[in-house]
Computed example of a mutant assay.
Amino acid sequence: MRLIATDLDGTLLRPDLSVSARTRAALDTARSAGIHIVPVTARQPRGLRLIAEAAGFTEYALCGNGAYGIHLGTGELLFESHVSVAAQRALAEALAVRVPGVLFVSVREGGEVFVAQEGYAAITHFQDHKREPEGLGLHTLDDVLAAPSLKFIVRHATLTPRELLAELRALNLGGFAVTHSGAPFLEVLAEGVSKAWGLALLCERLGMRREEVLAFGDAPNDAEMLAWAGRGVAMGNAEPEAMEAADEVTLTNDEDGVAHVIERLMAQTSPR
């Protein structure tokens, strides 16, 4: 293995969103052996920065479910992909008719610009987007739809993401990809974009084959990445989609399941 790709929430991070001492030690051991450690997360860079120091992340990172690739140390933008205005407008207009009360957010400019529809602040919390609800502002739907989005968020006050996903799929629209990460909303991406898509681009840049990648995840948005990687590992607390896509299952995030696998890997590859 030359690269370890890991999801954060529900995977690398414990339930209290901390990086355990055991996990940090395992990551450092792998880094010392020349293995790239790459966070692959639904978070935008501002959310990743909250835990980057604790995890020792200073190099490559894939944010926004793979739509935004950056180097944390240099700030270099590797690639980005956006949901088109036409695609998000078609989705929003059709879904608003089918599901009254649905609300939308456009995440733009590297995740730094967050344009939330009026009413969204009342149903969100800081941990949802690493932003204080009172700072979201009041935007019309036209404002939200006015520019392409790195991530286009779809949310309802009472419907779960799975329920909302069924309603969206019933529209039979194209021009975008949609997933969810365990957060209380759907995450719409540019067509074809996923964590696997972003990881494949990074590996091509680094001259690595998918067989050289070890990946960890727990949620539906991790499924493509776990299936694509040479070795995909689902957490013991993973959703069914991640379990089905993975090659194996480790301990839960509360039990340091990522560290458990890395420790075994390093023990197998250490000189005797």
Rank of each mutant, 00 (worst) to 15 (best):
A26R: 03
V113L: 15
N237P: 07
V105W: 03
D128E: 05
V97I: 15
Q88I: 01
L27V: 11
E187T: 05
N237Y: 06
E204A: 11
V38I: 10
A238G: 02
G257L: 10
P148K: 02
D9Y: 07
T74N: 02
D28V: 12
F114K: 05
A238K: 02
A200W: 03
R43W: 11
A92M: 08
A166R: 14
R22D: 05
M235Y: 06
E109S: 13
P220S: 11
R209C: 08
G69D: 11
K130P: 00
F104P: 03
Q88R: 11
G174W: 03
G69H: 12
L186Q: 00
F185C: 13
L77Q: 07
I35M: 15
A87S: 13
E167S: 12
E263A: 05
P45D: 13
F185P: 00
T250R: 10
R205N: 04
L202Y: 07
M1Y: 11
R89S: 13
Y68I: 10
L145M: 12
R2A: 01
R46C: 09
Q268D: 15
G119P: 02
A5M: 07
A219I: 01
H125S: 15
A242V: 01
G207C: 08
V258S: 12
A25V: 07
D143W: 09
H71Q: 14
F152H: 08
L3A: 14
A92L: 03
V144I: 02
D143V: 01
A259H: 04
M243A: 05
S20N: 10
L159Y: 08
E132V: 12
E80K: 05
E80A: 11
G217E: 02
E112T: 14
A166L: 14
L164V: 05
V258F: 09
G101W: 02
D16H: 06
V213Q: 09
F216V: 00
R24K: 14
L150Y: 05
I153T: 05
A196C: 02
A242S: 03
L251M: 14
S106Y: 12
L171Y: 04
R162Q: 14
E212G: 08
V188C: 11
L8E: 05
T11I: 02
P148A: 04
E211R: 12
D28H: 10
